[in-house]
Every structure is written in C-alpha cells, then in structure tokens.
Nucleic acid binder design. Structure first.
Length: 345
DNA sequence: AACGCGGGGCT
DNA sequence: AGCCCAGCGTT
C-alpha cells in the first residue's frame, strides 16, 4: 500500500479553489507557476487574474510593451521572472507557433523554466509522468522518509525527483503533483508545526512515527544580510516627482526609482547631490527614515523632500504626476514609505 | 557550489 | 528578528 491513493483522495476533498485551477491551459499553468516561484498563493491570486486579462495568450504576452509588463508585475518581486516569461513567449511564437511544447525537455529549455516548473507544467498541463519538486514537496518527502539531507543541496532535489518518478500515477500525474504541493502548503507546513492529526499520510510518515516532525527538513543556515545606508530624494517640481530608471541588470533591474545616493547625507551633502543632478534646490525638509529588507541586503533609508527652482534640464530624470506614478511607472515597494502622501489610494 | 534576486506573512 | 515561500540564472 502506497501513499498515492490516500494522497489523491485527500486532494480531491481538500484542494483550494484557485484561479489557475479553472480552465487550466498550458499557458495559464505556466504563467501561474512562474508567478508562484518563491511567492505565496495569496500574493499571486490577484496578479494572476490581472495578468491574464492583459495577456490572455502567448502571442499577446510576446507583444506587450516592457513598461506594461513591468507594471503588471509591480510589487511581486523577482522581476527577471517576467522578463524571462516574455522572452520565452517570443521564442514560443517563433519556434512552436505560439504553443507550449508538450515535453519536459523542451519546457526546460525555456528561459525562466527550471526542473520544478518544467515538471509542474508537464504533469499538470500535459499529464506527463514528470515529478515537480519544490520547497513544499521537499519538506513533505524529507519528513515522510525522515531524511536528514540538506534540502538546499541540489543533489537532494534530484534524489527526491528520482524517488517520486516511479510513483507518478498514469492518468493523474497533474493531481499527484498538485496534491503533494497542497499537502505541504496546508498540512505538512513549515515552522515545525505540521498538522499530523489531519494528515492522510501520517501512517506512512517515518518522522511522525518517530515523533520527530520538527527535525525535518534540514537546511543549512543562510549567511547574514549586509546593510546599506541610502539617502532618497523626493524631488518636486510643479506637482511632479522625479523618477530615475534603474540599470537593466542587477537589483530591481529596469524598474523606476526615486533618485538615491549611497550613505546618509546631511542637508549640505543633499544639496550637493541635488546639484549633481543638474537641479537647483530651494528648500529641503527631512523625511521619516524607512527600512526595506531584501533577501540579501537591507536598505536603511533616510530622505529629503526637495522643492526645486524651475529648471528646463531634466537630466535623465522623468517628472511623473501622481496619476502617472499610479498607472504608468513601475516602482519597487522599497520606495512606498516616501510616496505615501502622493499615493493616498 | 555559491550567490544574486523581492516582497510579505508567520512564528 | 528570522524563516520560508508552487526557484532560476549566473559565475
């Protein structure tokens, strides 16, 4: 007796009603899987619905202007995902007639698609017997087998894929993939508090039998974040705010930002910074400090609100109205504290 | 193998 | 404050 039957039975009764579980075409499954990478279901739901309205199929995604694309992704994070998504869409149009290929190996070739996503699309959208091992599945499997291997080690993921492959139930591969993930999300949850009392696999679970659920999964600790001091300028001119385009590579690539400088600038230094942008300040007022935590870096930000003398030279800045800030330019969440008074929505 | 890449919710 | 999340690409 194996885990497959009780797991599928449990899934049938307990699966959540999610937007991408309706009309689950390969394209919709693919987009949802990209959005869900390192991102919680609740955060994705609304983005997914809005994205599918703006780009209902692969050709329309391929044709979307970059600015619209980034605006649709604004606030979701890991922005290279959406760039790779469109890159792949263009490739699908040119190579596969605008269709998703129905093979694991071909899916894996698409930019932004790794072993997990290829397995998820292959099994969920095409019914192929390909395992899809994400953080949920790793946690479930390590507990089920009481395996103390480091889940951050790629080898552990490959081993888990190998162990699951022969279990893929013909005809229900997509349900099996989603059931494992759903179990990890709803029952075999992280933070050492799995709900074993309602788990359909409790009888099969080695960690549970040993009363050692809390010991799994094992993961090597991450290195500490570095802290960066930044000074942000809220440059105002005739009711507009200055924005600057970030570089195409690196952190928050190609998004817009409030102009900023390394370090914590005094008022005198801030005046010099404003002048370095080719602008002439009339008055500076300090803004409330704000902190923003990324995965690998922490920004400690101070800010100056700056009224400017009228000047024609915009010097690589754009001047955005409140409406443009809301509807056109894509800004990272890090700057939101400094824009509250302009974006009181 | 290690690192860069967002943002938010939970403990 | 730290952990984790339907991970992937680069070096």
């Amino acid at each position: 007796m194996g885990i497959v039957e009780p797991l599928l039975l449990w899934y049938g009764k307990n699966k959540r009603d999610l937007p991408w579980r309706h009309n689950c075409t390969p394209y919709r499954v693919w987009v949802s899987e990209i959005m869900l990478q390192q991102t919680r279901v609740e955060a994705v739901k609304n983005y997914f619905v809005r994205f599918l309205q703006a780009a209902p199929d692969i050709p329309s995604l391929a044709d979307l202007p970059e600015e619209k694309l980034l605006k649709l992704w604004e606030g979701l994070g890991y922005y290279s995902r959406v760039r790779n998504l469109q890159k792949a869409a263009k490739l699908l149009v040119s190579r596969y007639g605008g269709q998703m290929p129905a093979s694991y190996a071909q899916l894996l070739e698409l930019p932004g698609v790794g072993s997990y996503t290829a397995g998820a699309v292959a099994s969920i959208a095409f019914g192929l017997p390909c395992p899809a091992v994400d953080g949920n599945v790793l946690r479930v499997w390590m507990r089920l087998t009481a395996d103390g291997a480091d889940i951050a080690d790629p080898h552990t993921k490959r081993q888990t894929e190998a162990a699951l492959r022969p279990l893929m139930p013909v005809g229900r591969c997509g349900d099996f993939t989603q059931a494992l993930i759903e179990l990890g999300a709803l029952v075999c949850v992280p933070n050492a508090t799995p709900k074993c009392a309602v788990c359909p696999l409790a009888d099969f679970c080695k960690a549970h039998r040993q009363k050692e659920e809390q010991c799994y999964p094992v993961k090597k600790p991450k290195p500490p974040r570095r802290v960066e001091q930044r000074t942000i300028l809220l440059l105002e001119q005739a009711g507009r705010i200055a924005l600057r385009k970030r570089p195409a590579k690196g952190l928050l690539a190609s998004l817009w930002e409030l102009p900023g400088f390394d370090g914590t600038l005094s008022q005198e230094q801030a005046i010099a910074a404003v002048r370095s942008l080719g602008l002439e300040p009339v008055r500076l007022q300090p803004l409330a400090p704000a902190k923003h935590i990324f995965t690998h870096v922490e920004w400690h930000m101070t800010g100056w609100q700056v009224q400017l003398a009228p000047l024609p030279d915009t010097h690589r800045l754009v001047w955005a109205t409140e409406q443009e800030l809301r509807e056109r330019y894509s800004l990272p969440s890090a700057f939101r504290p400094f824009l509250q008074k302009f974006l009181q929505t």
